[in-house]
């Protein structure tokens, strides 16, 4: 009879979550607020819809179903810089377009990061000796991650986003500014 009572009380307990099953019911996680915030931030980057040239098509493909950037939590492309925290410079930046792009960057709230996508954004690409093209967006903006390619494939952009995640998390662990 006693054995039966014990079984009965165990069945009344709520089912353990997968995390609790892994860690055990009496475990404690030690961390810092910064790291928890960093974990949340780096799993939900909100990129700005900021295509400038052909790289933008690869960026669109990355966001669409086949490559599915949503797997990593980065699918919320924002049309307003006020809502975004990652500026993906996808394409050729001309001197004519440079002031609006810098303004978009300045309109984004902190914390914010910049990804230079493709040869043109990295260093002017095939137009490096042109009179109209900025030879690399790092002349104007603080770039965090460079993605080579002309254009880079969606996998490369995903890799760039994940590299940015690692970079931000590493800074949070150090306690420095990302």
């Amino acid at each position: 009879m006693e054995v039966n009572t014990e079984k009965q009380s165990q069945q009344d307990l709520p089912a353990l979550s997968p995390l609790a099953q892994l860690l055990g019911t009496d475990s404690v996680i030690l961390t810092t607020v910064e790291q928890v915030l960093g974990w949340a931030q780096t799993h939900s980057f909100w990129p700005l819809t900021s295509g400038l040239a052909c790289c933008a098509l690869e960026m669109m493909a990355t966001g669409a179903g086949r490559f599915d950037l949503a797997r990593f939590g980065y699918e919320v492309f924002r049309p307003s810089p006020r809502h975004a925290d990652v500026l993906i410079v996808a394409g050729t930046l001309t001197w004519k377009m440079a002031p609006p792009l810098v303004r978009l960057y300045e309109q984004m709230p902190e914390n914010k990061w910049v990804i230079a996508m493709g040869s043109c954004a990295i260093g002017g690409g095939p137009f490096v000796d042109s009179y109209s093209v900025v030879p690399g967006v790092d002349k104007l903006l603080p770039v965090d991650v460079y993605i080579p390619g002309c254009p880079p494939r969606p996998e490369a952009l995903i890799h760039g986003m994940l590299t940015l995640k690692e970079k931000v998390m590493a800074a949070k662990k150090r306690g420095g500014k990302p």
Partner: peptide, 18 residues
């Protein structure tokens, strides 16, 4: 086509060198 402050040169003039 040029930025607001201009290029500072005129690209299609023969005297302009890349």
């Amino acid at each position: 086509l040029a930025p607001e402050e201009g290029f500072g040169f005129f690209p299609l003039r023969k005297s302009y060198q890349l």
